[in-house]
């Protein structure tokens, strides 16, 4: 079990995170917040690249910095800006990292061919990575994070650059992996985590806003989510009165998906709220939702 205990992080006088408390058990955790909310800072603390200014992070009861290489031995990490050596092939690159992870060469070779098959890069295993597309590079990154069969797999924006087919494949892979490990996935793309995360963690104003499963978080907008069609001339007034979540032109009118508190109008159609609705609503300026389970 990985425990974040009263963790705060400051850079000089600038506070990024304050009093964060989270417990991670086996399963997929979606760390969901807009850019700049402190996701990467939290992730960097979880992988020992940064240290908390206050508080502690424990793995099975011991502080992770004290565990040193024993912690890194069970850790897999894909950073947001994943670097690689351009003249290396995926196989060379993974062999190098496998050595740094203390994996014996014979074992590493077997694991690498297994992983390259898993991320669909088997045929490109000998090609130089400088010729790779963004999606291919990202898949090499995912493979390197899984090299040591980690107990804690932390992925910062892992689906950046992946096409829809690769994203679906990746989600399937994570669900499979999460059966016997902690998978923490940081993203600002709701669909990446909506269907696979056991728990969603949202960060706002330097603190954990919600930590619950998708259903419970979506239910925070239960009975408040509607759709309706409005004339173009009334669209501006409508936006001022209600919180618009999505808009599109349809049948010569503006179709709004929006949040409204109070009595609904008869022409409004009540809809089931999704995680994306809550995400967009929660991060709209000056809005707070009650009933959050933190």
């Amino acid at each position: 079990m990985l425990v974040v205990n009263n963790v705060s992080k400051q850079f000089g006088n600038f506070s990024v995170l304050e009093d964060i408390n989270i417990e991670f058990n086996n399963g997929v955790y979606g760390l969901l917040a807009p850019n700049g909310a402190g996701k990467t800072t939290l992730i960097k603390m979880l992988v020992t690249l940064l240290f908390p200014t206050k508080g502690e992070i424990l793995y099975n009861g011991t502080e992770i910095t004290g565990l040193d290489e024993k912690y890194r031995d069970v850790l897999g990490y894909l950073p947001q800006e994943f670097g690689y050596y351009k003249n290396y092939s995926p196989e060379q690159y993974l062999l190098y990292l496998a050595a740094l992870k203390g994996i014996h060469k014979k074992q590493a070779k077997e694991r690498i061919s297994e992983l390259l098959r898993l991320v669909n890069l088997e045929e490109a295993s000998q090609k130089k990575m400088k010729k790779f597309s963004g999606g291919m590079i990202q898949r090499v990154g995912i493979a390197q994070a899984m090299l040591n069969d980690p107990k804690i797999l932390i992925l910062d924006e892992p689906t950046a650059g992946l096409d829809p087919k690769e994203r679906a494949r990746f989600r399937k892979l994570l669900t499979e992996l999460a059966r016997n490990r902690i998978v923490i996935l940081s993203t600002h793309i709701v669909s990446d985590v909506e269907s696979i995360a056991n728990e969603i963690i949202m960060i706002k104003d330097k603190a954990v806003l919600y930590k619950d499963n998708t259903e419970n978080i979506s239910n925070l907008l239960e009975g408040k989510m509607y759709e309706t069609e409005v004339d173009f001339s009334e669209a501006t007034t409508f936006r001022e009165r209600y919180t618009s979540i999505a808009e599109k032109r349809e049948n010569g009118k503006m179709k709004f998906r929006f949040v409204a508190n109070g009595e609904p109008h008869t022409e409004w159609k009540s809809v089931t709220p999704t995680l994306e609705d809550v995400f967009l609503y929660a991060y709209a300026d000056g809005i707070t939702l009650n009933g959050a389970s933190v």
């Binding site: 020992t48 690249l49 890194r72 990490y77 800006e81 994943f82 690689y84 050596y85 990292l97 740094l100």
Partner: peptide, 18 residues
């Protein structure tokens, strides 16, 4: 300045140990 500094730093044997 190494492009894979962050990945290397989270491996069992990190850059400082090497």
């Amino acid at each position: 300045q190494s492009p894979i500094y962050e990945v290397e730093m989270t491996c069992k044997y990190n850059m400082y140990q090497l």
